[in-house]
Design a protein around this nucleic acid. Structure first.
Lengths: 201, 201
DNA sequence: AGGCATCCATGACAGATGTCATGGGTGTCC
DNA sequence: GGACACCCATGACATCTGTCATGGATGCCT
């Protein structure tokens, strides 16, 4: 019997998924959580074999939970289920020790199957998401460029960004300029869009 | 027995939801669809009593489906279930004849209850979403301002926006300027953010 | 008919932004 | 030690943007 932890902030979904997984003979949902923090607590308390984590949750996202879980409970395999498949997430997730990555558009049988796969030490990534991630490639941005571009994400003027990242306005403009050039965008706002789409910020 | 149509592009969710609704004695899921178009076709074929529609679907969104369904099948009550509760959606939905509006964070029992409510001619809107919508108020933007601001959403430079909406660059700047002023933003990109948050574009 | 909001456009100006050249500081790799 | 990438900053310049004044066209309401 594989003991499963289920974390998703959408009660409707989580409850429904739990029912569905419980229908499988070899799976048992032993705990549920609606937030990242709750997921961690539940995992410590119940020591599940597999943690099925939603990517977007109010506090910690699924990847952060997976990362901590990987350190605290090495015996627990983590997998991510997500609504929108942005390339960068997959990369981050795999680097954090996540062993399964599925979009919510998959079928119930696939989900159950992947739970079993990761439990036996295997890995499974949705083929389409994998292809997207490969097509997106690695980020051409330096860490600082990514920082500044992310801070520019709200659309704030340069001065405000500079204050937020503790840099001079001139430096901010330099970073933004170079990031914009690397991404082939017409201005920083377009650069933000493409960087987001690629999952680079 | 209330006959229910279920439309959601996420197979996982839709299947789970269907199982859950079917567990209710007085509910029966008679059709499922993964796209807006499929939902319309399924509705015509099966004539359900209640249509439970996801807001975001690949082709038509839930609100458009609801609008057409309201014209074609007046006997079918529509309700929307959504992941992210943006104020403007609720308003648009209600204007399109939607009678129920719930976030996916609700419980299964609430969902079932609301299905029954809308079936008997009642209405139900999630209290929190309703409060947000009221707080957001009406859009101060003229239709054209909203158009142009939406076209500016990608972060493209003015010239490109002008080409896309078939206006002179100067006019575009005028509209953007007035929209930005109305929204109290520092520039058009911030204006886009707040307009999106409010659901005004 | 007059008032009013909206739509579209132009011109002009100040300020914000994008780009480039330049330079100093740091750490890493060979 | 030298090449290299990255980090941070400044100054200068051209362009883009935001704002304002102005004006004509349309349609709606009273």
């Amino acid at each position: 019997m594989i003991r499963v932890l289920l974390a998703d902030d959408e009660n409707l979904i989580r409850g429904a998924l739990a029912q569905m997984l419980d229908l499988e003979d070899d799976l048992e949902v032993v705990a549920q959580a609606a937030t990242g923090a709750a997921a961690l607590a539940a995992a410590r308390a119940h020591r599940p074999d597999v943690a099925v984590l939603d990517l977007q949750m109010p506090d910690l996202d699924g990847i952060e939970v997976a990362e901590r879980l990987g350190r605290e409970l090495p015996g627990c395999a983590c997998m991510i289920v997500t609504s929108h498949g942005r390339p960068g997430y997959l990369k981050r997730a795999l680097e954090s020790g996540v062993r399964g990555f599925l979009p919510k558009t998959t079928t119930a049988s696939t989900l159950a199957q992947v739970v079993r796969t990761v439990h036996t030490g295997g890995r499974h990534v949705d083929p389409e998401l994998a292809a997207e991630a490969i097509a997106a490639g690695d980020s051409p941005l330096t860490p600082r460029e990514a920082d500044v571009l992310e801070a520019a994400g709200s659309g704030a003027p340069v001065g405000e960004i500079a204050a937020r990242v503790h840099l001079s306005p001139g430096t901010v403009r330099n970073y933004l300029s170079s990031a914009t050039a690397k991404l082939g965008a017409a201005n920083r706002h377009e650069a933000v869009s493409t960087a987001r789409r690629m999952g680079w910020i």
